[in-house]
Each structure stands twice: as structure tokens, then as C-alpha cells.
Design a binder for these strands. Structure first.
Lengths: 224, 224
DNA sequence: TAACGATCCGGACCGAGGTCCGGTTACGTT
DNA sequence: AACGTAACCGGACCTCGGTCCGGATCGTTA
């Protein structure tokens, strides 16, 4: 099983034709009981689609899989795919949802140094390493799931990570513009960059890791 | 006139069907006299296409212009557009070529603090500000011209900037992994990020500017 | 200037993402 | 159990980026 999170939330009363429907519900830790829950057939199809996508991607690579093929493999109409996941990015993102939620759980409530309990800078270091390796594992999928430039940073998952880094930074550098610094740190962990450095420049993961630790040091080094 | 650089280089002897043809010739400072020069009609059409594209983009925005429309506006076949510029990204990049070359000339041979003559850190500061404002001016075009994640960092223009930053860093931090640090600094100047921060988060350019100066300080701050 | 070959042109063609809407199905209600 | 409606399904359809190749052009050589 590569996927998870089969429940999803529907939009407000209005079934306005062709809208996402499958918002990434990260960070919704026990809030509003707002889960209309899919109709039985819809849920079944959703599951089938994720399975089918995972199968095809394992076989042909994320880049070589067409939406129509996924629909066919799932024994479902093309419209159903788009109704459920909005667009290609949405489907791919849903496949990453499991590991995304796990990561989030780890740094929100897991054991130190990733989770609470360790000093902020320590957590920051661990965070980077964790993200680095997670991205490396699923590079192809991460790349294929990357939305167009306009949406890249507004994506809920990206914002969650960014928010966390900002918080850690603020605990260390109360007077700095942590929002911007966090953005910079996150940029270092961008899958596209990791891809470039490892596959096109031939750098080793160890080097990237060292680079992260060094970067964190430099950024958090308080005044001269 | 928004465009420039009407000359272009053709590929080796073999006219292998459907290949770029219009490589961005940045960094070719007076090297090989390797410029077969386009045939008259080809050059004429290239110019027409750039004009047409600039017109349409000014009118409908970079995102709302189709390749076919550009071809039509230029009174040319669709195939001609792709033969000349390879793909959509290629055409958009060509439109940015003028300002790209100007920027490059400025920091390679212009007056300090951008050009040689000022201390490296000073040049780095000026460089970031310059790139920041250049991107802000042509945000839409820069966004639309951004290639897919896999090619983003390998693009010649990006590499040129990166190389320069690396050099400046190495003059300041001879013992650091300047390649990686440069990548981080460049990431701060990514058009997609600037777009997000200014238009989606509502930050001011002044804040971004301060952020850059601060970042450069932190990164170049030599050991405790 | 006539003829020839390399280069280029154009628009029909293809594949893939995304949309639409008539028909179908699930589920609460009576 | 029959019914009504909201939600869902499917696949035809559209658009747009990108490809292909027969035919037209340019520039050169004789």
C-alpha cells in the first residue's frame, strides 16, 4: 500500500460542477466534524483510482502515466478521475498524502529530535534531514506532483512545512524576519533542486546533508 | 521593442529535424566565430514572431497567449514557431533574452558595486537587489517562461547566474561549499517565490530587499 | 541566368489534460 | 417497498502544445 487517507471532504452545499473535492486535509487535527463522507460508490472508485495509479506509476514511472490510463486501469471513466482529484497534480499529491501526513505527525508530535522536546535548532536540523531523505525516496513522484509555479508555494502541504520551520526559527531568532528565512530554508529542500544536485550535478546525499546543517548554522548564528 | 538578439546559432552540420536551433548564447563572450546565421526568410520570421508574441502578451498577459495565436499574429505557420524556438518555454525565454544579457553584462563588466571593482560581498548584495527588481518587473513573463521542474536549474541562463554567485561567494568563503550556498541564495530570487511573497502574501519589495541583505549577511558571516 | 541542394515553411495531425452534460445510482424519506 | 433528489458516473468533446513531411525558398555555383 503506497497510498492512504481514503476519506475525503466534500465542498459546501453547492455541487458546483467540476471542483476539487479532495482538499488535502493536513493540519486538520481534530477540528470541525465537517466530513460529509463520500457516497459508497465514490469512495470505492477513489480507492480503485489510487491503487491503479500506484500500480501504473510503479511500472512506467510517474512521468509516463496518463490520466486516461489510470482511469482505464481502475475501470472507471476519465471524468471520475478529474471530479475526484481536480487535476493531475491533485492525483499525484493524493498519492503522497500518506507520507506527508506521517512526516507531519513526526515533527508535530513524534519523539525528539524531530518532535517537540529538543531545542529548536536541533529540531530544525533533524527536520531538514528528514525532508531531504523523504524527497530523495520519492523524487520522481515529487517532481511530477509539483504544481505550476503560481501554486507551488500556496499548496497546503508546503505551507504546513513552512509554518513549522517559521515557528522553530522564531524560537531561536525572535527579532529576525523568520518568515523569509524559513522560505529560504525550505527552498533548499525543494525536490526539483535535490533532483538537479543529485542527478544532474552528481552530488551525494551526504554532501546535501552537510549543506543543510551548515546552512542552518549560518542562518541561526546569532549576531556577530 | 521588448526583444533583442535576432541573430542566432544553428546546430552542427546535421539539420536533425525539429531541434531547438535557438540556444541562448549567454556567456559566449567572443569565443568561437560559430554563427552560421539564419537564412533571410528565417530571420525575418523570427523577428516577426518575437514582435507578435510581445504584442499579444502585452494585450492578453503571458498566460493567455497560445502558440497558434502567436503564429497567426505573425502571419506564419505553427510549425515555424516550434522549429525556431523549440517549445513554449523557448519562445518566452527569447523574449527575456534582452534583459538577461543586459543583467549579465552589468555584473560581468559594468560599474561597481554590481560589476567588478567592489568587494565581493558588496557585489553580492547589489546582485540580489538587481535580480529582485528585474524579476518583479517581468514577473508574469518570468513565471510563464519557467520550464518544468526537471529543467529549471539546468537552464543556461540560471547556470550563468549561479556561477557568478558561486564565484563571489568563493572569494569570501574559500572553505565553504559555495556551490550549495549559491544555490540557496539563488532560490531566494526565484520568480515563483517572489510572486508568492508579493502577490499572495502581500509583502513589499522593501521587505524582500531587506531579507536579501540579511540573508547575505548571515550566509557570509565568517565563523563564530 | 539557370539549375541545384540545403534549408525552411505550413498546416494537417496526434496525444494528453481538462470540461460538460445526459443518464444512472445511492440513500434518506414516506 | 416505492419514490424523489442529490450526488455521481462516463465518455464524447474541446483546447493546446508539440510533431511530421511534402512542397516552396533561398543562396550558391556553374
Amino acid at each position: 500500500m503506497l497510498y492512504a487517507g481514503f476519506m475525503s471532504a466534500a465542498l459546501p452545499p453547492f455541487p458546483q460542477p467540476q471542483e476539487p473535492v479532495d482538499k488535502p486535509h493536513l493540519l486538520e487535527v481534530g477540528s470541525a466534524p465537517d466530513e460529509p463522507c463520500l457516497r459508497a460508490d465514490a469512495a470505492r472508485n477513489r480507492a480503485r483510482l489510487l491503487e491503479a495509479a500506484a500500480r501504473l506509476i510503479a511500472e512506467h514511472g510517474a512521468a509516463g502515466v496518463t490520466m486516461e490510463a489510470v482511469a482505464a486501469e481502475a475501470g472507471v471513466g476519465k471524468g471520475t478521475v478529474f471530479r475526484r482529484f481536480g487535476d493531475r497534480t491533485g492525483l499525484l499529491t493524493a498519492l503522497l498524502d500518506h507520507s506527508a501526513k506521517k512526516l507531519q505527525a513526526d515533527f508535530l508530535g513524534g519523539p525528539p529530535p524531530l518532535g517537540p522536546g529538543a531545542p529548536p535548532v536541533e529540531r530544525l536540523r533533524a527536520f531538514g534531514i528528514a525532508v531531504l531523505y523523504r524527497s530523495a525516496e520519492q523524487l520522481d513522484l515529487q517532481l511530477a506532483a509539483q504544481p505550476e509555479p503560481t501554486r507551488r508555494y500556496s499548496h497546503p502541504s508546503a505551507r504546513a512545512l513552512h509554518t513549522h520551520v517559521t515557528m522553530l526559527l522564531r524560537q531561536t531568532l525572535p527579532d529576525a524576519d523568520c518568515d523569509l528565512l524559513a522560505q529560504t530554508l525550505m527552498a533548499y529542500l525543494d525536490p526539483a533542486l535535490i533532483n538537479h544536485l543529485t542527478r544532474q550535478c552528481g552530488m551525494s546525499m551526504e554532501r546535501l546533508e552537510k549543506g543543510w546543517l551548515d546552512l542552518v548554522d549560518r542562518v541561526t548564528r546569532t549576531g556577530v
